[in-house]
């Protein structure tokens, strides 16, 4: 074997390896984020994630699009399905506590609103939304519970935010049970785990300029 092909081969293999290391570094944010969820949270923290304006239909049949708007309101948004026996009920419980705090502090003029997007359009009927709202004592002026008005709107919102709901094999779904902090322009300003709801509230208040 002549030395020339070996040298050229080593050069080509080195270039290829470096290119792939560079690509891997780019895809994992410098070898620090190996999962899609970690990348998604990083995108939110650095302002690279935004929620499209999607109309939501409430239990009362009213249609509303929380964002964008010209107010200084920020939204704490979760994704639920009403038949969910686990994480969504836990989220509902935490939202009840959030609602209580907001009501106690701001009365009828809270700069932070709660939004629960019900993504199982087949089962999240107005009656089921109403039951979910009652179970968690949701108050309409503080907490919007609604389902996207069309399957396309639902897909658009979930895809834009990287929320993935997969069948759990028992008739329900497994999905990202997180709280999304979304400003009035639709920009996602943070993603928090369920148990981090106090931090989510603090950050939301910071964004509205309210002392925490």
């Amino acid at each position: 074997m002549s030395r020339r092909p070996l040298a050229l081969t080593l050069l080509a293999a080195t270039v290829l390896s470096l290119a792939l290391v560079g690509l891997s570094a780019q895809l994992t944010d410098g070898f620090t984020r190996w999962t899609f969820e970690a990348l998604r949270r990083d995108a939110a923290a650095t302002g690279r994630l935004s929620a499209p304006a999607i109309p939501l239909r409430t239990a009362h049949g009213e249609t509303g699009t929380p964002w964008p708007n010209g107010t200084n309101t920020v939204y704490l948004v979760d994704f639920i399905y009403t038949q969910c026996p686990t994480i969504c009920q836990a989220l509902g419980g935490e939202y009840t506590r959030l609602q209580r705090q907001l009501r106690a502090r701001f009365g009828a003029h809270s700069p932070v609103r709660l939004v629960s997007v019900a993504f199982d359009r087949a089962h999240d009927t107005p009656a089921e939304l109403q039951r979910y709202a009652q179970r968690h004592a949701a108050e309409d002026d503080l907490w919007l519970i609604g389902t996207p008005t069309s399957a396309q709107a639902s897909d658009t919102l979930l895809k834009a935010l990287g929320v993935v709901a997969i069948p759990d094999g028992l008739g329900g779904f497994v999905h990202n049970g997180t709280i999304h902090l979304i400003d009035s322009h639709g920009a996602v300003r943070g993603i928090f785990d369920l148990e981090q709801w106090p931090q989510a509230l603090d950050r939301a208040l910071q964004l509205t300029g309210t002392p925490t």
Binding site: M1, R4, P5, L6, L8, T9, L10, A12, A13, L16, S17
Partner: peptide, 12 residues
């Protein structure tokens, strides 16, 4: 063959 001596490039 000139850039794949011993199969190094392909196996990389």
């Amino acid at each position: 063959a000139v850039i794949d001596a011993h199969g190094l490039l392909g196996l990389t």
